[in-house]
Design a protein around this nucleic acid. Structure first.
Lengths: 202, 202
DNA sequence: GAACTCTAATACATAGTTGTATTTGAGTTC
DNA sequence: GAACTCAAATACAACTATGTATTAGAGTTC
């Protein structure tokens, strides 16, 4: 039960990370605007002093939180996609990967919060857009390689098709979350599948 | 310049409506959570007394605001779609209609706010879902009639396709709003067009 | 037009939030 | 181990928001 005696830097990093995790919980639960600094630090087991000593503002904390999730998702995605493979394998792996991400309710809510915040905070929007474009480009790469493998031409610029894909998935995820009864997983996947198939495989 | 002397009911209705309009402005500007009752009434030229005399809560006001917009949009849509017409005419009119709705930034933001609020307020979500399903059914009707006219079978249940359509449009609208530089109107429309075409016209 | 009624203003009491200024104490340096 | 440094706690002052209770005054009723 010997608890390690932390160095100052380790201790600070621990606080920093705990605050981020607590913020994820509280923001998902109450929403970004309604989540007070007090709420976040209390959830993490600290007082507000810890917050102001670690972050300049709530928005800054939030963007760091999103950054971490973005990097995680991105890394996972690359691990799947970077090895060259067959069309069928890619399809299968993307589906599997997608199902995994799709299930994570907390992070889904965080990104939804982030999007509305981006509508009115220009600085925040700039950061978020950067992540968004990275993701788009990753997806556009896949689409481009996909069409190359098939030897056909994409029906629109791959980057635009990538935006469409992201829009479609996010939007469906929203309905799936708020009206699960009317749009169960199977229906959502089926509808997505139809559109993907007809767009990318026709 | 003779200002009409209003009856009590007229006066009350006027206040009610003005508060709704002011709320639309303020909520779009600051977000639902950050928009205080004071902000809203001040914007309308009243004090908080007017608010509490007209609404039970901010959420109730908001849902009424959304209801009005929903009914407007719906009525407009029906006016276009209810008269039987050719495939080409429908396509053209939907495009025109869509472009009009697509432009309205304020209401777009309001619905985005509404969606995140729906994630955590069950009562609010129930109301919003009702509007959402009405819209889905309207669109599903169009899709169904569309395939009947063409004499082919829809590739998925029309209601699910309707959800996809809504998801896609909302999602693209979001990118178009936050990253207009990367996704200008033409690109968004083009990408949407490709997906619609390949899904519905293949 | 006097008594009445209801809408919106005002007053009030409470509670929550923010950021900074200051203090405390655990880690660091020598 | 004494002096030092910095992360986090605490204290503080200003501000904002909420809902209700009460009041004022414009419409209504007779």
């Amino acid at each position: 039960m010997a608890r390690k005696r932390l160095t100052r830097e380790e201790s600070r990093d621990q606080t920093h990370q705990r605050l981020l995790e607590a913020a994820a919980l509280v923001i998902a639960k109450k929403g970004f605007a309604a989540a007070s600094v007090e709420d976040i630090t209390a959830q993490a087991g600290y007082t507000r002093g810890a917050f102001y000593s670690n972050f300049k503002s709530k928005a800054e904390l939030f963007i760091e939180l999103l950054s971490q999730d973005h990097q995680c998702v991105r890394q996972d995605l690359h691990q799947i996609l970077d090895a060259p493979q067959s069309l069928e394998a890619i399809e299968e792996q993307i589906t599997q990967y997608y199902l995994r991400v799709y299930r994570d309710e907390k992070n889904f809510i965080l990104w939804a919060e982030a999007r509305v915040l981006a509508l009115r905070d220009a600085k925040f929007r700039a950061k978020l857009n950067a992540y968004c474009l990275e993701k788009r480009d990753d997806i556009a790469d896949v689409i481009e390689r996909f069409y190359q493998m098939r030897g056909s031409k994409p029906p629109a610029p791959p980057k635009d098709l990538a935006f469409s894909t992201m829009a479609l998935i996010d939007g469906m995820r929203f309905f799936n979350e708020t009206i699960p009864k009317e749009l169960p997983d199977e229906a959502a996947q089926n509808a997505l599948g139809v559109i993907f198939t007809s767009t990318f495989f026709k």
